[in-house]
Write a protein that binds this DNA or RNA. Structure first.
Lengths: 214, 214
DNA sequence: GCGCTTTCGCTACGCGTCGTAGCGTAATGC
DNA sequence: GCATTACGCTACGACGCGTAGCGAAAGCGC
């Protein structure tokens, strides 16, 4: 996103309406055509702007789609649902709902694939999509700690590693379930996932705590 | 893969050497160019075959790359390492090593993205890549059950659901860690992942994690 | 050996998209 | 009004796509 005239700038300002129209047209094109058949000329036509206007704002297909898909994740939030389990299940269901939309399915994986060979693109994805999701993990853990559901973390580095692990497990599982296994991440599945996660995190090795044998 | 003359077939048989040369050239092109810049003409040149030969065997870029990437996963195996934890850690490290290769990174995610709009392609990926991985999960569980590390599953349907969940969690976590978070799935990380998984699976809640009431 | 069949390498082609250049016009700040 | 920037439009060369057509090569059955 590079709209909004940079304050003390002379000349005709860029149309903010064009930005939103282009991003919406990109998502519509993703739904109708998918990533590979999506052409920038088609997007420009759908948005009602000239192709040159599009090229003045985005370097190419990759950057455009990242921005178009990133807006889908704006709706992700973490309301207090009373317990850590409920919080996890809620946000995972939100994430799954986004990934169920065809514009997210085809667009997201494609730009991730491209980002393996484009460090700038990977950074763009990280800041506009991934980092926003990871904040939810940190927020949820802090909330659970204030509830007493999780112990406070003495080691900051260890805490960061654990958060990264949880994030990769949750996001990865939902993405893999939705896009690779191609089955819906419904309530039952999310409950099972949450259960494994919580027990994996709250259990303590037999040396430290009573073994949970039964 | 559609090589090997169909037995009672007349005429000049297809060159098996051409198949392997094309697939190797495809992986080389993935390394050098990535998915989006990979062209079939270039692959044909690298393989030393005519472009028409390539089109006679594969319908397009998608199918070709699936087959080229699928061969990377042939090396996945599950030797008996003595314990369930060691088995998991070993196979996850193998999986991570494959995903660390650039031809897998850029190729795999791209075809998964394309498969969201191409059911036949998704099925091709499933049978030639995903299903082979999932077998390792079932094999590992059976071995752990014979060791007594995991209880036998009374309900077959429930057992299948659990296996699918574990598979999505493990594969998804490694993929997400490697491609999205863009950090290496090294020994420490794999051990942490295994630990969370094992405790999450072997712990049994006395009642249930869900706030059943109140 | 000899035909039949299929594959192979090669060339050439129409098609569509890419990304850019150039131009006249529209919208802002001073 | 004037400078500056964005916009819509057209046109262009470059390139990859996927196919057609050809003669030659390599198998199989006889």
């Amino acid at each position: 996103m590079q709209s909004s005239t940079p304050a003390g700038r002379a000349g005709r300002p860029r149309s903010a309406a064009a930005d939103t129209a282009i991003l919406a047209a990109t998502r519509a094109a993703l739904v109708d055509l998918g990533w590979s058949k999506l052409t920038l000329g088609d997007v420009a036509t759908r948005a009602g702007v000239a192709k040159t206007t599009l090229y003045r704002r985005w370097a190419g297909k990759n950057e455009l789609v990242v921005d178009a898909v990133a807006e889908l994740f704006d709706e992700l939030e973490l309301p207090d649902r009373g317990s850590l389990a409920a919080d996890i299940e809620g946000v995972v269901l939100q994430f799954a709902a986004i990934l169920a939309r065809p514009e997210a399915r085809s667009g997201l994986m494609a730009v991730v694939a491209e980002s393996t060979r484009d460090e700038a693109l990977r950074e763009r994805i990280r800041t506009s999509i991934v980092e926003r999701q990871k904040r939810l993990v940190l927020e949820g853990r802090a909330r659970a700690q204030s509830r007493g559901e999780l112990p406070p973390e003495p080691d900051a580095a260890e805490a960061a590693r654990t958060a990264d692990l949880i994030f990769d497990m949750v996001a990865g599982a939902v993405v893999h379930r939705t896009l690779v296994s191609a089955e819906a991440a419904n309530g039952d599945w999310v409950r099972s996932l949450t259960q494994v996660l919580l027990w994996g995190l709250t259990s303590r090795p037999p040396e430290q705590t009573e073994p949970t044998d039964g």
